[in-house]
Design a protein around this nucleic acid. Structure first.
Length: 435
RNA sequence: GUGGAUGUAGCUCAGGUGGUUAGAGUACCAGGUUGUGGCCCUGGGGGGCGUGGGUUCAAGUCCCAUCAUCCACCCCA
């Protein structure tokens, strides 16, 4: 049997509704904050990700899907969204002054070659947003607030917002050096993974779960201690902004992020819902003031976040226990040969009037048409055969009350719409008086 | 990349110490009830046990390999 590729998933008809619902919230909240959607290609020149995400990160070193196209160019399926947005903003010159600050969001599949587990697939989806062209702490606050508000809109309430600052490029360099000097004589006290991180990406040593309570890590220098005066003021103003919004957050001096491009504010929002397994981070983000210039664009400051959509859906599973079932307004049950009556015409007119209707085309008998109807969760059954056709009526049976009434064909559309919406018919149906 | 668990009907799962044509529940189909479903009764179709090798007179059942899934580490969203 042909199977889907490891780490990918089919989103089946019975689960598509929760995706649609989530996508609707994404669009609605983005609209409230006045962010516009941008859609970029799913693959880009490999170089883009190497230069933005960082050559030393695991993502670029061993998790990208790279392929050579027929023109011998190296392409990469995007492992994240920010790099593509940056490229597009530069390429399309969206950064002209009149557009700033640019507020963009994106939604779509990303690809990373990882071992799949709960909350982690090889093809997964991210919803991300970026504020481009503002150095103000207000942009950081806006971004964090957007993420928090989005979670509130989804009713995901038990979350922890953690923030930290890595400072500007200079602060970051000074800190890296200090951390290195400190770790060099102490690294043997830390775990195997930390020893590896020390060589590859020393900042991440702070993230260690095993040694987080060790004296070595507790006494390690923290990014905060190396912030330049300006960077410190920026961070303090971000905090003032969050305070004035009344957001709950905590400053986590050990918070660093895996991607190279972050500067100044970094933040993460975690949930401890059990359905998330060990992948508890719903969203991560921060400021990246040097990415535009390092990709040969103008010197644009920016700040953004990215949500893991599958993780959001896992979180929602824990919150929305009862499933929302799709429904039909009516299932049309035809007795006898459907071609001997005007059944098809009636069905179509109901649909043109905006009613969700389905009917059998597997030649099922009456009993099985009822069975089939029950599976599709209709509000009404419409029963129609030659007897009804003769009298120009139709039997309308309510699933809720089990009552069956005979309705004149000319009244059917209005009758159903009254019952279903308590509103009058909006038109579109030509067979009934009320329309 | 590392470690652990698991792979038997569409779905959920049972199949001590290897032994006749592989089981249950559920779903599906048919009949009882040929213009009224849901309940009940009766019957039916459907898998050859992830894949490939091996041991054996005999293997879902033991051994090896391989693939896949899940969970955790790592990494990250």
């Amino acid at each position: 049997m042909l199977k889907r590729i490891k780490g990918t998933q089919d989103i089946l008809p019975n689960e598509i509704m929760k995706w649609h619902d989530l996508e609707e919230v994404i669009r609605n909240v983005s609209k409230l904050f006045n962010f516009s959607e941008i859609r970029t290609p799913i693959f880009e020149a490999s170089e883009l990700f190497h230069r933005s995400v960082g050559e030393t990160t695991d993502i670029v070193k061993k998790e990208t899907y790279d392929f050579e196209d027929r023109g011998k160019r190296m392409n990469t399926l995007r492992p994240e969204g920010t790099a593509s947005v940056v490229r597009s903003v530069i390429e399309n010159k969206l950064y002209v002054d009149e557009n700033l600050p640019l507020k963009l969001y994106y939604y779509g599949p990303m690809f990373r070659y990882e071992r799949p587990q709960k909350g982690r697939q090889r093809q997964f989806h991210q919803f991300g947003a970026e504020v481009i062209g503002s150095n103000s702490p207000l942009a950081d606050v806006e971004t964090i607030n957007f993420a928090v508000t989005f979670l509130k809109a989804l009713r995901i309430n038990n979350v922890q917002v953690r923030i930290n600052s890595l400072g500007d490029a200079e602060s970051k360099e000074n800190y890296k050096k200090a951390l290195n000097d400190y770790l060099e004589p102490n690294i043997h006290n830390l775990c195997e993974d930390c020893n590896r991180r020390y060589k590859e990406n020393p900042l991440r040593v702070l993230d260690c779960k095993i040694d987080k309570d060790s004296d070595t890590l507790k006494n390690a220098p923290k990014p905060y201690d190396y912030l330049s005066a300006k960077a410190k003021v920026h961070f303090e103003q971000v905090i003032m902004g969050l305070d004035s919004l009344g957001l709950n957050y905590s400053v986590d001096k050990n918070l660093v992020r895996g991607l190279d491009y972050y500067t100044h504010t970094v933040f993460e929002i975690d949930s401890d819902l059990e359905t998330l397994g060990s992948q508890s981070t719903l969203v991560g983000g921060g400021r990246y003031n040097n990415l535009y210039s390092s990709l040969e664009g103008p010197d644009l400051p920016a700040v953004g976040f990215a949500f893991g959509v599958e993780r959001l859906l896992l979180a929602l599973e824990a919150i929305n226990k009862e499933e929302v079932k799709p429904y039909l307004h009516a299932y049309f049950i035809s007795i006898g040969d459907v071609f001997q009556t005007d059944a098809l015409k009636i069905i179509n007119e109901l649909r043109y009037a905006g009613l969700i209707i389905d009917y059998d085309f597997l030649n099922k008998n009456l009993k099985n048409q009822f069975k089939q109807a029950d599976r599709l969760n209709p509000k009404y059954y419409l029963i129609y055969g030659e007897e009804e056709a003769q009298k120009q009526v139709i039997n309308v049976k309510s699933l809720e009350t089990k009552e069956q009434v005979e309705v004149k064909l000319t009244d059917l559309c209005q009758y159903l719409i009254n019952k279903l919406t308590n509103k009058s018919c909006s038109g579109g149906c030509s067979s009934c008086d009320g329309c």
